[in-house]
């Protein structure tokens, strides 16, 4: 599929050069909260991607009718309605996942990436572009979440997606030499990993220039 230069930039830009988490430093709070294990991070990434894309489309459709003075409220109502919908659907069709994510699904409403994209992009751009922008930003957010969760679950619990990666026999408790890094389980460590990613990301992009 051939994409025009602009489309490509809208969709793929947020994955790297304009990443919402590591470049714009948005949505950090949820990146700390749901990244202890890989599975909730994945589900959160998918949920945010769907909600950003859909709310971008809806706001873009309404952009010429929204009164300027209450535009933030209208955006918030749209986002809140979508989040409630996703949460209800999850409770009906994926109860276990809904229970695991518990409050974090509701907290998507407060994710700065959503309001940021609605205000900065969907209010002034066409529907298709807004959809791509939402998709790109959601995926950019999900990518960082998955990287952070990968390190935290691997070094914090020795598992990935619940499957054991570091053999039981390596552990000190079983006469081995290895011990899980308890620090990885703490929210502070997520912040340090995000910081590390930002560092690596800037260093690599600097070289390219």
């Amino acid at each position: 599929m051939a994409l025009s230069q602009k489309t490509k930039e809208t969709l793929l830009g947020p994955l790297n050069a304009n990443n919402p988490v590591v470049v714009q430093v948005l949505g950090i709070c949820s990146a700390l909260a749901v990244t202890v294990q890989l599975k909730p991070a994945l589900v959160m990434g998918v949920a945010v991607t769907i909600i950003v894309a859909m709310s971008n489309v809806i706001i873009s459709l309404l952009r010429n009718t929204i009164p300027m003075r209450i535009r933030i409220i209208v955006q918030l109502v749209v986002v809140a309605a979508l989040v409630t919908l996703v949460s209800e659907v999850l409770k009906a069709f994926a109860y276990d996942v809904a229970m695991q994510l518990s409050v974090y699904i509701g907290l998507i409403i407060t994710n700065c990436i959503l309001m940021g994209r609605l205000e900065a992009f969907a209010m002034t751009n066409k529907v298709w572009d807004s959809f791509l922008d939402g998709l790109g930003n959601g995926l950019g957010y999900a990518a960082i979440l998955i990287i952070v969760a990968f390190f935290r679950e691997l070094f914090g619990a020795g598992t990935l997606l619940g499957f054991r990666v570091i053999p039981e026999s390596w552990y000190v408790a079983n006469g081995g030499f290895y011990e899980n890094c308890g620090m990885m389980m703490m929210p502070a460590m997520a912040l340090i990993i995000v910081g590390g990613i930002i560092w690596a990301h800037r260093a690599i992009n600097e070289e390219k220039k």
Partner: peptide
């Protein structure tokens, strides 16, 4: 502005009430 806000809120309220009704038994 007032009419717009009212219409948006009513649409969203009806939509959410409907979804809640439909999915309720399943939940």
């Amino acid at each position: 502005t007032i009419v717009y806000a009212t219409v948006v809120v009513i649409i969203v309220a009806v939509l959410l009430a409907l979804v809640s009704q439909v999915l309720g038994p399943r939940q």
